[in-house]
């Protein structure tokens, strides 16, 4: 337990050092930023709700009328380098900094995942899982999914893994034998089949053909104005406002329906995991009292 924590801390330190090194090497992420901005044209107000065409508008301009000082400098730096082929990259790097970050996150993610499935100690596995989730959040950031990156950290690393740790505390016993080695030949066969399938899937995914404009910066989310005379509001793609607008329009039904699912989960988890009473018939009475107390 202690050794794995030490290893974890060391790993995090290494990642942090590598991060700083990578950033200082190339002038940092901020320097890479202007490339993703389209030629400083005025927002082309398409009345169509949804997302504007790519590369036609600055990424964030109008935020809810109230002037946000932070938005001003972003608008002030025009970026003519969009035609630079090096800028046409999925994570919009025009230098190795983003690539280095990607590989760090990739290694962290894979390493953490392998840690999860090989550790005998369950706490160690959970720590590997947390590492994986942080790396995944980093990848989300690179894909312009900033809101989801934060949610990933809050919900997965923050809430779900804590739940796992609580249950490990309740169980409090190490695994007798971590590997199910019964039927080894079958498992080797399954492993070969799985490796082959993963290879096929991987080669398929590696050669995925993206639409022609997919390497440009993502378009802003266009929210139609309340009054016809106003300009439409543009939100950063993948920002809280952008995702929220989509969530309450296109995804209204799933958003509401997920509440049913959460209710089932809450009620069900309590119904199953609640402590046993002397007899289930008696427990039925005790339950009514417990329900009143809560």
């Amino acid at each position: 337990m202690r050794t794995s924590l030490v290893r974890l801390v060391t790993g995090l330190a290494v990642v942090a050092i590598a991060l700083v090194a990578a950033l200082s090497l190339t002038g940092g992420v901020a320097a890479a930023q202007p490339a993703e901005r389209a030629p400083g044209a005025a927002p082309a107000p398409t009345a169509q709700p949804g997302t504007a065409p790519r590369g036609t508008a600055p990424r964030i301009q109008i935020v809810d009328g109230a002037a946000k000082p932070a938005a001003a400098p972003a608008a002030g730096t025009p970026a003519p380098r969009i035609e630079d082929p090096r800028a046409r990259d999925v994570i919009n790097s025009n230098g190795p900094a983003m690539a280095v970050l990607f590989w760090i996150f990739a290694l962290g993610m894979i390493g953490g995942a392998i840690f999860v499935i090989t550790r005998r100690n369950m706490i160690a596995a959970v720590m590997g899982m947390v590492g994986t989730f942080f790396a995944v959040a980093g990848l989300y950031m690179m894909l312009y999914a900033s809101f989801l990156a934060v949610i990933q950290m809050l919900v997965y690393a923050g809430a779900i893994m804590v739940l796992f740790v609580f249950v490990i505390m309740i169980l409090n016993r190490p695994e007798d034998e971590p590997w199910g080695l019964v039927g080894l030949p079958g498992k080797i066969l399954a492993g070969i089949a799985l490796a082959y399938l993963t290879f096929r899937l991987g080669s398929l995914l590696a050669s995925v053909k993206a639409p022609a404009d997919a390497l440009l910066a993502p378009p802003p989310v266009v929210v139609p104005p309340g009054a016809p005379t106003d300009a439409p509001t543009l939100y950063d793609w993948g920002s809280t406002a952008g995702v929220g607008w989509n969530l309450f329009n296109e995804y209204l039904f799933p958003f509401e329906a997920v509440s049913i699912l959460l209710l089932v989960a809450v009620v069900g988890a309590i119904a199953i995991a609640r402590p046993l009473k002397a007899d289930d018939d008696d427990a039925a009475e005790g339950d009514a009292a417990a329900g009143e107390a809560s």
């Binding site: 790519r54 894909l143 999914a145 997965y156 952008g242 995702v243 969530l247 997920v258 199953i272």
Partner: peptide
């Protein structure tokens, strides 16, 4: 979602995270 420029994928991912949390809660119970 990034590839198609469709922010709906983000909403779906959010729903998936909620579902995963619910599933974990029931599974741990």
């Amino acid at each position: 979602a990034r590839m198609h420029g469709d922010v709906g994928g983000h909403s779906f991912a959010l729903v998936v995270i909620a579902v995963a949390a619910a599933e974990v809660a029931v599974g741990l119970a």
